[in-house]
């Protein structure tokens, strides 16, 4: 038997109720925490020949998402396995203890929320063309061979991606205002502006309300709203105190 590591949290944190079979693997087991000093790692037992599947990836995230609702947890890269509890203590927690503590302090009380804004293709295309004479000049030009059409399409796609990014920034302004930090993410889709928001746990309902309003205002934009997730996109955030100081520390 070996252990799968989910994340790191403060030692002594009571775990929320999780199904007894919440873990990853073919015969999923219980998730518990291995403590070292004032830190703890969430683990579950896996078979020695554990070969993770995409389904396990979802379970891994589900466990962490359940935790983050109640307590600060730092996600560990999916697939991290250790042979036993001592390896978790002395190879996962101990060597990185100082940094883990600092990350836990920096992210204490915060969760990640994600918003995907999916724009209408025609609207995006018109917007991109309106913004660029070069793109307008390409209208009607994509009539050559495959390579030529791909070339034209690539330029148009880039224009649309830029339009989406800028629109996303504008549209999401009421949401980013409620967040401590925000970062645009690549959604892998030209029409989707994706945003990760670091939000205080006690302000999630405010964010819910802001998203609800946004949805009711935007008829042509689809708003997907996800979370709370562990702060995957903010693991390098500094402690709020340091953030404030550095802002004025010039």
């Amino acid at each position: 038997m070996a252990l799968h590591v989910y994340g790191v949290l403060r030692g002594g944190t009571p775990l929320p109720e999780l199904p007894e079979t919440a873990g990853v693997g073919d015969s999923p087991g219980e998730v518990w925490s291995v403590e070292y000093d004032d830190l703890a790692a969430l683990v579950s037992e896996i078979a020695d020949d554990y070969a993770p599947t995409d389904h396990d990836g979802a379970r891994h995230l589900d466990v962490l998402a359940r935790l983050i609702v109640e307590t600060t947890v730092l996600p560990v890269r999916f697939g991290t396995v250790a042979p036993d509890e001592d390896a978790v203590r002395f190879e996962v927690l101990e060597p990185a203890a100082a940094e883990l503590r600092s990350q836990l302090r920096a992210l204490d009380g915060f969760v990640e929320l994600r918003v995907d804004l999916t724009f209408d293709e025609q609207e995006a295309l018109r917007g991109a063309l309106a913004a660029s004479p070069e793109l307008r000049g390409l209208a009607g030009q994509a009539d050559g061979d495959l390579e030529q059409r791909i070339g034209v399409g690539e330029i148009v796609t880039e224009g649309v991606a830029e339009w989406t990014r800028q629109q996303g920034e504008q549209v999401a302004a009421p949401l980013t205002r409620l967040a401590r930090l925000s970062v645009p993410l690549n959604a892998g889709n030209t029409l989707v502006a994706r945003l990760a928001l670091l939000v205080a746990r006690d302000r999630v309902t405010e964010m819910d309300e802001a998203v609800r309003q946004l949805r009711s205002q935007l008829s042509t934009v689809d708003v997907e709203y996800v979370g709370p997730l562990p702060p995957y996109d903010f693991l390098d955030a500094r402690e709020p105190e340091a953030e404030r100081t550095s802002r004025w520390g010039w």
Partner: peptide
């Protein structure tokens, strides 16, 4: 994404 435990002897990252 997520914290990576680097370069230890008994801990590894298995992939899909």
């Amino acid at each position: 994404k997520g914290i990576v435990i680097d370069a230890y002897v008994r801990v590894a990252v298995v992939g899909i």
